[in-house]
């Protein structure tokens, strides 16, 4: 799995940092998203999907691996 961000769309609602703190943080400068881990390990992949689903501005894109 890979996490991709459309940073321009971020308005810093914080859903990702709240629900997947292992993977996302917010910048001290403007509150927008910082990705801590672009290739989350399997046990964190559900958190990544949750963050993507909750983001109010569709900033987070999850690229699921093609491998089985």
């Amino acid at each position: 799995m890979k996490i991709r961000i459309e940073h321009d769309r971020c308005r810093g609602a914080g859903q990702c940092a709240l629900n997947a703190p292992e993977l996302f943080d917010q910048s001290d400068d403007d509150g927008t998203v910082i990705v801590l881990d672009e290739e989350p390990s399997p046990e964190l992949q559900d958190s990544a999907r949750l963050a993507a689903a909750l983001c109010p501005n569709a900033v987070i894109r999850i690229i699921e691996s093609c491998e089985a």
Binding site: R11, G12, G14, A17, L18, P21, D25, Q26, S27, D28, D29, D30, G31, T32
Partner: peptide, 15 residues
Amino acid sequence: HTRYRRMLTRYFTVR
């Protein structure tokens, strides 16, 4: 809206 929101967001982060 974006201009104001960007100024304010950092004061309301999760941390």
